[in-house]
């Protein structure tokens, strides 16, 4: 597996949210605006890259790995929780409005299955550089996924796209054109469930089609042979 494949698999083939259905809670809760999704992505990228790096650093040292092995899950948890707390404090100090709107979901990155899962499944068995790439890919894959959900929700719910702070796009003219006004439901919990449900269904449909195509191609190749 090349470095590029390693990086890209997190975004497409093994996308944590869309394919593996991990990290549903934050993807439903923080996707009310693009800004929140971006903030969450930054936090997850930070935690994931560093935790993957540190854990693979610990585990690639054979002596240390032997010592750590029996208590490796608590060790992972301690490392991840430390990184999450650092992110929490930094965000509180420098991006306070974002901190307030993400609320409890920043500390809850700790129990985000993606991070612990990657630590156990990848970082513990691979070199630090590969682990960083893997972590970056996975975190960005998660970020892309929640960004898609949040664009969907914020646009339908308010007609706006808040990128960061005052940088805001008003797309209400599309609604004006359709002579309706934004559907407030999409900023509500019900809208979160419905958006994610439909996005997952679309992805399932697309990937099913692609698989069918691949099978047909294989069949075609065989028939030609």
């Amino acid at each position: 597996m090349t470095k590029k494949e390693n990086f890209l698999k997190g975004i497409f083939k093994e996308n944590p949210l869309f394919v593996a259905l991990l990290g549903m809670c934050p993807s439903l809760a923080v996707t009310t605006s693009v800004e929140n999704a971006l903030g969450m992505t930054i936090a997850v990228v930070f935690v994931m890259v560093l935790s993957n790096f540190l854990i693979s650093l610990i585990m690639s040292n054979e002596k240390l790995a032997a010592l750590v092995k029996p208590v490796r899950i608590p060790v992972y948890i301690v490392v991840i929780a430390t990184l999450v707390t650092i992110v929490e404090m930094l965000m509180h100090a420098y991006l306070i409005s974002l901190y307030k709107s993400l609320g409890i979901f920043i500390p809850l990155i700790v129990v985000n299955c993606i991070i612990l899962g990657r630590a156990e499944a990848f970082a513990a068995e691979n070199k630090p550089t590969d682990s960083i790439i893997d972590g970056l890919g996975m975190a960005l894959g998660f970020g892309v996924a929640i960004l898609i959900v949040s664009i969907f929700r914020e646009f339908l719910g308010t007609g706006l796209l808040t990128i960061w702070g005052d940088l805001q796009f008003d797309l209400n003219f599309i609604f004006d054109f359709l002579r309706i006004s934004p559907l407030g439901m999409f900023t509500q919990p019900a809208g979160a469930f419905i958006s994610l449900g439909f996005i997952l269904a679309i992805i399932a449909a697309v990937s099913a089609k692609r698989q069918e195509k691949q099978i047909n191609q294989v069949k075609g190749v065989k028939a030609n042979v």
Partner: peptide, 15 residues
């Protein structure tokens, strides 16, 4: 077990 515990403890302290 003891050493692993110590490792965990020291890691906790560092963190």
């Amino acid at each position: 077990g003891l050493i692993s515990g110590l490792v965990l403890l020291s890691l906790g302290l560092i963190c």
